[in-house]
Design a protein around this nucleic acid. Sequence first.
DNA 1: ATCTTTTAATTAAACATTTTAAGGACGCTC
DNA 2: GAGCGTCCTTAAAATGTTTAATTAAAAGAT
Lengths: 340, 340
Amino acid sequence: MAQKIKLSTIAETLGISTATVSLALRDSPLVAGATRDKIKEQARALGYIYNRRAASLRTSRSGIIGVVVHDIMNPFYGEILKAIESELDRSRHTFILSNHYDSVEKQRTFIETLLQLGGDGVIMSPAIGTPPEDMQLAEDNGMPAILVARSLDGSDLPTYRGDDSYGISLATNHLIGLGHRSIAMIGGTDQTSTGRDRYQGYVNALRKAEIEVDPGLRIPGPRSMQGGFEAAVHFLSLPQKPTAAVCWNDLVAIGLMNGIARAGLVPGSDISVTGYDDLEEASISMPALTTVWNGQAEVGRLAARALLDRLAGSHEPDGIHLIKPEMRIRQSTSPIRPRS
Amino acid sequence: MAQKIKLSTIAETLGISTATVSLALRDSPLVAGATRDKIKEQARALGYIYNRRAASLRTSRSGIIGVVVHDIMNPFYGEILKAIESELDRSRHTFILSNHYDSVEKQRTFIETLLQLGGDGVIMSPAIGTPPEDMQLAEDNGMPAILVARSLDGSDLPTYRGDDSYGISLATNHLIGLGHRSIAMIGGTDQTSTGRDRYQGYVNALRKAEIEVDPGLRIPGPRSMQGGFEAAVHFLSLPQKPTAAVCWNDLVAIGLMNGIARAGLVPGSDISVTGYDDLEEASISMPALTTVWNGQAEVGRLAARALLDRLAGSHEPDGIHLIKPEMRIRQSTSPIRPRS
DNA sequence: ATCTTTTAATTAAACATTTTAAGGACGCTC
DNA sequence: GAGCGTCCTTAAAATGTTTAATTAAAAGAT
């Protein structure tokens, strides 16, 4: 490895002070155009590499933004991340990504690491059971935090997410409109704000249509394709013989449809199924999935913008910002057809 | 925000030197047990946050490892990343993740950023068309690089990936064994080493069975579910009326099966389809997908270990390390049944 | 010519840690 | 009580930037 090139190397070889070099490289108006060009040229020639940690030691700005979500492999978060990435890229910030898999411990470790690295800010979808103090840790040390996808009780940090209650009621109403009366709700948990909101949306829609809410029709479970697939058996053996299912998300819905098909029934005609999120997969599943667009990209984009604005000094309003979901009707739902 | 707590704050409040504090916090044998405990206690009480950038400025070790792949939303890379993450977690390294979306430009920017942050090393699946000099940039600046999933012509960096040629020939042979003679190959590109290897494996298997290789049966395309779905139309209208398809990966295979089903045929009996990678999705697709296990988790784990070993001083052998794929037979393939 | 203003470049301190060489205190031995 | 080793602690230098304050030089105004 060649000798380390630093500001002073450039300065010396040019017979000039390091201050000038520093200013020139950052296009400061304090240094003459000709000098600047000469310096930049020399930097390139020497293969100079800017040392951000030295700089950030001085400026206490690292250009690093942390992002933690439940699981980056989940396409739902994937779409949010993609939006955040493209927004941050534009402003020359580097982002550090982590899963917390709903472990409060892992999440705290991440926040600490980020603080140690001098992170400028953090965007997170808090783990189930996150104590508000953990978020305060970030704020207390001058690292602003923004929440996405999930809100956190007891915290008034700026939060961007879809209007889950409204979204699920859209799906439920759609099924009710098709004549379904026995509608199950598959997947998810009641331990997150999202979970409670979604269940509430389902309950509200049923009540409004004067359909009795049967707790036996709620099948909680993993929010994955696998989870939906495994729920199929339970679903098909329910004594209430539901004719439709509102699923937690598209993955669960696709898994459920596959499970239903595996059992010899035809999803979309024998059983109506709705998803949630409108992932790319939804439009090409078999049958194409009726689902609810939940604005992931929008959520990610807004959250990133909010953080950047905050870093730039303007103080965004705290509190929860809801994105309005929209219905996407495809072939996985159809008018009721009683199960024997 | 409270006053910043640093080593010297702890030292002062305890009437002691910063050097002792520094040593104590890192469990140096140079400081007495009692003093050490007292110092650690005080650090906790004050809410001290270790400043890694100051430390790394001195030590030139940041604890940061970069990882770049084509697309983290692709479950294939997702599984590799998961393995890398769990391996790095164990050794208290932070990892910075990025997609390059096969843009050499974006990839180079990432490497530069990583160098600026003082990254200790980088694991990458190089973008199509990566000039070997770009990798050299990392090595030249003392940042070791390891390749995963794809190899790079003209570079002898340590590389970990599956044996693609062998893997695809497994799948092709399986179909040939079921009596298929007209077998298409769907998805992918010839621009990566992986692409060329996979096509070669397919060609080799056909040749060995004395089946003529028909270039018309090769349908390249995006390596996504969408890509497979869209290829279905083209596939079904081929004049050669293929009875089976070897797909680039599971996503393409699932997309293709959905496309076939959409056209009214039954994947798995009318048309046999094989995938590649053995993603979680494969076992619960409809029908369950016959595929090739490609050892993603193993690849990720080995690559991470190799990097850590290298950082610890031991020099791993350069060159390509291949993981042997294995066949996973499920319901998407069956004995030939001629298409009308 | 001289004074003022503008422009350009420099000096030196600051950022928070690690580490090496050196110092001090203490107890032990002869 | 001098000498010596051990154990603990310290002072100071080093890491590579940024930036406020300053100086030097050039240009403009009178």
